[in-house]
Nucleic acid binder design. Structure first.
Length: 330
DNA sequence: TAGGCCATCTGGTCCT
DNA sequence: AGGACCAGATGGCCTA
């Protein structure tokens, strides 16, 4: 730990010497012992009463042969300053913890909308991101080609670049899922279906429930199609959406929503406390259908409609995510 | 036991 | 000045 600060840094100024940590405590074991927590340095070392003499060490250094340091004279590390520094460091650590927890929560939300969410076998962070990328890619293929991909190729797309265990998990989830469960649970119509028929725009509210451990390839794609995707794929608005196969409300992976999945409060505003509360950043988007008819994925407000020339098909599918973000932010 | 993954602390940088 | 973000370092836990 001998790095030198090229310009006055707050910490260096506060601490008074570059190698203050090394000088204050001679080893990591001491740091651990002092902080009472294994695995990290914990609280700022060298701030105990017995280590209050950093400024004295600095004086000795000046007396040596080393050239005098330029710039403003460092303030003395008084006990009060050390206390403030320690308090600030503790606060910063707490904020950082909170920030990382938020990041992990977001990652968890992402896991839940992945095609193979499992509480027992959680995807690692990196695998979640990779799978998400592949998922977007695969779904954009569905949109672009307007065809339901063959099961094997869909799985292959999802598993591209994933580790073997994750690939096995994805393949297993998509091929061995409880398809009968899907069929059994959807005899009744969804509330949003009637309005969808009358307006030729489909409204679908994400169940806002945790996703399932499994979902077959078929149920998963059914999720993607009705009601929102089916119209895109069929490219036909002459027929009302198939309300006999409403979106699964049970423990299946939520359907794709370009704008994210979210629950709505009574007043129609997105409930950000519920899972899939992504609306804060991405307003709901209506993709233009093949005939220029808007196809509303969500009944959220506000709703932006993308003209046909700005529709998803206009963009290279491999950059669809960022492009869509750009569109949303317009 | 090695390697992967993770949580946490830490200090630097940028921004408000 | 203080907060957010980031990357490096470190040690714990788990599994093959």
């Amino acid at each position: 730990m001998t790095k030198t600060y090229t310009k006055p840094k707050e910490m260096a100024e506060l601490v008074g010497t570059q190698s203050w940590m090394d000088e204050a405590l001679s080893s990591k074991d001491e740091l651990k012992a002092e902080n009472g927590r294994q695995g990290t340095f914990g609280l700022v070392p060298g701030l105990n009463e017995e280590h209050d003499s950093i400024e004295e060490e600095e004086e000795e250094e000046d007396d040596g042969e080393k050239p005098k340091r330029r710039g403003p004279k460092k303030k003395k590390m008084t006990k009060a300053r050390l206390e403030r520094f320690r308090a600030r460091r503790v606060k910063a650590n707490a904020r950082e913890r909170t920030r990382m927890h938020g990041l992990n929560d977001a990652l968890d939300n992402l896991r839940r909308v992945m095609p193979c969410y499992s509480k027992t076998q959680k995807l690692s962070k990196i695998e979640t991101l990779r799978l998400a990328r592949n998922y977007i890619w695969a779904l954009s293929e569905v949109l672009e080609t307007g065809q339901t991909p063959e099961g094997k190729s869909f799985v292959e797309m999802l598993c591209k670049g994933l580790s073997q265990p994750t690939s096995n998990l994805v393949a297993g989830c998509l091929q061995l899922g409880p398809q009968t469960l899907f069929l059994d649970k959807h005899e009744e119509k969804t509330p949003g279906c009637e309005s969808a028929i009358s307006s030729h725009s489909f409204t679908y509210q994400s169940p806002g429930l945790p996703s399932p451990p499994y979902g077959s390839m078929e149920t998963h794609l059914l999720h993607l199609k009705p009601p929102a995707f089916k119209s895109l794929v069929d490219a036909s608005f002459g027929n009302p959406p198939d309300c006999t196969t409403p979106p699964y409300e049970g423990p299946l992976t939520p359907p794709l929503s370009i704008s994210g999945n979210f629950s709505l409060k009574q007043d129609g505003s997105p409930d950000l406390d519920k899972p899939y509360a992504f609306m804060a950043h991405y307003p709901s988007v209506s993709l233009a259908g093949a005939h220029g008819h808007p196809t509303h994925f969500q009944n959220a407000v506000p709703r932006y409609e993308i003209p046909i020339d700005m529709s998803y098909e206009s963009y290279p599918h491999h950059v669809a995510g960022p492009q869509l973000n750009a569109i949303f932010n317009e």
